[in-house]
Design a binder for these strands. Sequence first.
DNA 1: TTGAAACATGAGTCAACATTCAGGTTCGGG
DNA 2: CCCGAACCTGAATGTTGACTCATGTTTCAA
Lengths: 215, 215
Amino acid sequence: MSQHSGSGVAAAQERTGPKTERGRRTLRRLLDAAGEEFGVRGYHETAISHITQRAGVGLGTFYVYFKSKEEVFKALVADMGARTRHALSESVKDAPNRLEAERLGIQAYLEFVRMHKSLYRVVMEAQFVAPDAYRAYYRTFSDAYRQQLSQAAKRGEISDGDAEVRVWALMGASTFLGLKYGVWEDGADVNAVSEAAADLMINGLAPRAKNGDAS
Amino acid sequence: MSQHSGSGVAAAQERTGPKTERGRRTLRRLLDAAGEEFGVRGYHETAISHITQRAGVGLGTFYVYFKSKEEVFKALVADMGARTRHALSESVKDAPNRLEAERLGIQAYLEFVRMHKSLYRVVMEAQFVAPDAYRAYYRTFSDAYRQQLSQAAKRGEISDGDAEVRVWALMGASTFLGLKYGVWEDGADVNAVSEAAADLMINGLAPRAKNGDAS
DNA sequence: TTGAAACATGAGTCAACATTCAGGTTCGGG
DNA sequence: CCCGAACCTGAATGTTGACTCATGTTTCAA
């Protein structure tokens, strides 16, 4: 893969990134500004001039760093993907088993979304603005996830089942919960939501075997 | 709800729909053409002239039936919502219990998506083009769904749990599966996918109790 | 100190629509 | 046959905004 200077963003400029410190600072400002603007106004409502104004640079400067409007957008999607994967693998890294990992993962995901609302929107809009970037985002994600599930099944930590289908169902569930409770209702109790969600993912809807048992 | 003439689409024209047969035919042509165009090129890439050309009418005619580009789009989203709800309630109407209803529902949903790829895309893009219509779509949907789950829980057909969270998780799962296997991989075996998905939703990831278990 | 590479700038170009409008055409009841 | 309502039309208007470019300014190594 490409080197990711600073925070993992692939720069533009044909081949090489900025050479000087000033250049790197300007690139970062543009990227941050673009993320903000795209995040709140959406791709089509965002003008390059909005981005450069927010970044505090001249309009022409944008094209010193990016070939086109679409290019920044793609860079942002890729960046978000890397960050999300990083946050999740961190949160899950010392889970004792897969079921616990699921529980931790969904919770970390909701928190992450809430902390990055605008970039989250960018990813979702990519489906229409940059379909390739969107599919790449989920492909990368699902490849790793599927791997995890398959191995867990082999270890007997989860039941057998089509890992691919499960991965997409689980990603979909998380995505919608992120939208509803992370973006739309950002006052909701993330803990309670992720508990309920994890319970569904782990135990399903089926009634528990009746027993005198309980916690 | 509002009267839905013909196929459930809310017409434009300030207050009343077309008065003559010719008018109704033209409206329907425009609606169909718009659905097609928006579905394959997306909202922003679709020009009104594309729609009118596909419909075989003059450019100005569009504005006889719709106040704006956004208005057709919203009409389409609403129409798709009504159709989806109808298809699902049909498919589920004589399920013996909720778990079976879930199984049938997910399958019917995948089939429906595959039969209406373009309108499906319209709904998803509504998130950015007409957020209100999008939220309305899912609110209507989730209200009914939540109701179903709550009652089923009361009847003991499913376990207890936060119905709202479950509904959003389940809608998310279905949506993503629809995207992956209904739109992207339209050659996939819908039956196998929906079986695997239903199994996950019903039984979760947890390993099944060993046979001859205690209970 | 100096020259050239790197970086910055914003007025101007240009194509792409959404929407309007003034003037037809068709239809149906009287 | 006649008239008004309903319907149809596409050229013209006006706006918007991505992208270019000719001309600076800054940086830094030699």
